[in-house]
Design a protein around this nucleic acid. Structure first.
Length: 420
DNA sequence: TCTGGGGTCCTAGGACCC
DNA sequence: TCTGGGGTCCTAGGACCC
């Protein structure tokens, strides 16, 4: 069996780079992009990093610093970033036989079939192509496993833009790498590994997997195997369907009134239902949560949350909204200063291509009938037939609806015989 | 005064059933 | 009088990622 090889393509300082594509005057200038509500830093250009601006730094703490140092500051624009991401991914998909879009700015490519001596040259060409066609600079790292490709990508970012790590290079690359830089080893694990004498990626690779599994979990064990070149994480060529969906926001100012929470939850519910329908999914459960600020040291953090099951899985805006609001009213407690609210939809599954058929005895005011039909189809996707019977005349109609893209075509048809 | 939003997976523990 | 063991499902919470 031939050796497997993965490439990780990672966009450099992605959000900051996106802003630059649309304003070249930003090139060479420190740029940062802020989270929602301009809360904290979520992207930094190389110049901003060089100034010492940290990832996730609260903006209010560095605002003056940014002014003094000529840092250009942007609120995030996810529509733009999403669009740029699709452009980059399209270029990669054109090139690679198999690829996994891992995040908005990263993709793994299966490059097992490219000859070793051509790898560097081919990937350098790909890098140039992405930059030329999208304006986004990327780094590419190659390794035997995804985890090793991540390591190689780190090296690529430090210079050259492309780093091909062959098995004989691994030892040296891992030797000096802090263990916390390994993909899958976060802050907690780094702290927990330290007393075991594991502070570098090389030491983690040499560690006893059985012991690590016992002490931690299988995820850590897999990471160690991956560092050794045994691929445990396969390329997920087909993006799996989303399993949960969350919409949440922090409040600009702390909220103490039920009516304010209700308003925010109503907005969240609407957005969540819309996202569900775009993905043609329905949800089984709904969770609502609201919590106080974790940064407020004067009071103990408080979270109110509750989950409820729908009678039938749904994507119905009104049902989701009313259910969420009933939970909010149950959960809300006076006296707390809420910092954030949100809803989480769980147990998502693919919406059936429903062909709802409904006969209901309503009068022959067609407009209200049409509204009901639209609702029904909206919530069930697909096309369908709805029958109406007039209580006054005894006649019956059939309304057929065909939903293509976003428009409906409707067809009224008077049935020859009266409905039974 | 002001600290993001959206995901995944794993484990432990309780409820419940046979 | 003695009070099993194994399986599944669900939830909460913790860890990680970008």
């Amino acid at each position: 069996m031939s050796e497997r090889r993965f490439a990780l393509v990672d966009c450099n300082n992605f959000y900051a780079s996106c802003e630059r594509v649309f304003d070249p005057r930003l090139i060479g200038v420190p740029v940062v992009v802020l989270s929602n509500n301009d809360g904290c830093v979520i992207a930094r250009s190389a110049e901003a990093k060089a100034l010492g601006i940290k990832m996730a730094a609260p903006f209010f703490q560095i605002e003056r610093f940014c002014q003094r140092n000529g840092v250009r500051v942007f609120s995030s624009n996810y529509t733009l970033y999403g669009d740029m991401s699709r452009r980059v991914m399209r270029v990669l998909a054109d090139w690679a036989p198999a690829m996994e879009v891992y995040s908005i700015d990263e993709a793994f490519l299966d490059i097992s079939r490219i000859a070793e001596d051509r790898l560097h040259q081919e990937l350098a060409a790909l890098r140039t192509r992405v930059h030329m066609w999208t304006g986004i600079p990327v780094s590419i790292g190659v390794g035997r496993t995804k985890t090793l490709a991540k390591v190689a990508n780190d090296l690529a970012k430090r210079g050259g833009g492309v780093s091909v790590m062959l098995p004989e290079d691994e030892e040296r690359a891992l030797q000096d790498m802090p263990v916390g830089d390994v993909w899958g080893i976060g802050r907690r694990l780094t702290a927990a590994l330290e007393p075991l004498g594991i502070t570098t990626a090389g030491q983690l690779r040499a560690a006893d997997t059985r012991q690590l599994r016992q002490r931690f979990n299988v995820v850590v064990e897999r990471t160690v195997m991956e560092l050794r070149g045994i691929d445990c994480l396969l390329l997920e060529d087909v993006t799996p369907a989303r399993k949960t969906l969350m919409v949440s926001r922090s409040f600009g100012d702390k909220v103490t009134l039920l009516s304010d929470i209700e308003a925010s939850i109503t907005t969240h519910a609407g957005r969540a239902a819309e996202k569900l329908r775009v993905g043609r999914q329905i949800a089984e459960h709904l969770e609502v949560f609201m919590h106080t600020s974790p940064f407020d040291t004067t009071t103990k953090p408080y979270t109110a949350r509750a989950t409820i099951a729908f009678e039938h899985a749904t994507a119905d805006t009104r049902l989701i909204t009313s259910t969420a609001l009933s939970l909010v009213r149950r959960l809300f407690k006076r006296g707390y200063r809420y910092a954030k609210s949100g809803i989480l939809l769980l147990g998502l599954s693919e919406a059936m291509k429903a062909t709802p058929t409904l006969f209901s005895p309503i009068d022959d005011r067609r407009s209200s009938a049409l509204m009901a039909a639209m609702d029904l189809l909206n919530n069930n996707y697909g096309s369908g037939t709805i029958g109406f019977a007039s209580a006054h005349t005894g006649k019956a109609w059939r309304l057929r609806m065909d939903r293509r893209s976003q428009s409906y075509t409707t067809q009224w048809e008077e049935l020859a015989k009266t409905a039974s």
